[in-house]
């Protein structure tokens, strides 16, 4: 039996914490979870304490990358075989857990990314045209730099095996974590698979990528991908 951990980064998500938690409990999956409270300024911490949830409380806000890495460190220290990144804002659907873990359990892939774009009818939330365009541009550059197509490089719904947990616990890109971590795995010859998942529209909270920031974001992500694909390659 493989030990699976859900890593749920959470920043000012007081309305969503219990929703996500109940979703996990309802789904009857026998899995552990850990919330990473990324220095929330709302009542998140009280909610975690009151309901006796399993959480790590970061003593200062780190951003999504630093919070997720804390989750990977926790997974590594506690001997989990598989870690699944799961958003704390109710965007992801726990029912896809098996689908996303299966290729990792079978050993077909080191990381599986749940993508919104693989099958049209699968996802209710295909996201806006601009988001799609952004993903395509990032995807294009990853393909050039790593010769591998990742359709949804910014998806935060992903499962990884023990080897990658260790890798991420030691070193995780904190600036643009989703695309950069994919690149860092690809250049080191890890195998990444994608499975189609359905995502919900965000329920409250503020998306971490705002529209007016997106151009700036795109330029930096592309730059990061190019730099990572050169610098993260380890000499063997």
């Amino acid at each position: 039996m493989m030990k699976i951990l859900l890593i749920i980064p959470s920043y000012n998500e007081e309305e969503n914490i219990l929703k996500v938690y109940n979703q996990i409990k309802k789904s009857n999956h026998k899995i552990d979870y850990v919330f990473v409270n990324d220095g929330s300024t709302d009542n998140s911490l009280k909610i975690f304490k009151k309901n006796n949830l399993n959480y790590v409380n970061l003593i200062h806000n780190l951003g999504i990358g630093g919070a997720v890495q804390t989750g990977y460190k926790y997974a590594y220290e506690n001997g989990y075989d598989i870690a699944v990144q799961f958003d704390g804002d109710g965007q992801h659907d726990i029912n896809y857990l098996e689908k996303i873990c299966d290729p990792v359990i079978q050993g077909q892939a080191d990381m599986v990314i749940g993508t919104r774009y693989l099958k049209k009818e699968e996802s209710k939330f295909q996201s806006t045209f601009m988001r799609r365009l952004g993903s395509d541009i990032i995807s294009f550059f990853i393909r050039i730099c790593c010769r591998k197509k990742i359709t949804d490089p910014t998806s935060g719904f992903r499962a990884v095996n023990r080897k990658v947990i260790k890798e991420f616990a030691e070193d995780y890109p904190t600036e643009y974590p989703e695309p950069e971590s994919a690149v860092s795995l690809l250049v080191n010859k890890y195998k990444i698979d994608e499975v189609p998942v359905s995502m919900n529209e965000r329920e409250g909270g503020v998306s971490s990528i705002r529209l007016w920031k997106s151009v700036d974001y795109m330029i930096k992500v592309v730059l990061a991908i190019i730099i990572d694909s050169i610098s993260l390659r380890r000499r063997k």
Binding site: V56, I59, H60, K73, Y74
Partner: peptide
């Protein structure tokens, strides 16, 4: 700093 915050938070837990 990131490393310290992470490790301290995990230790506190």
């Amino acid at each position: 700093n990131v490393l310290l915050i992470q490790e301290i938070s995990l230790l506190k837990k």
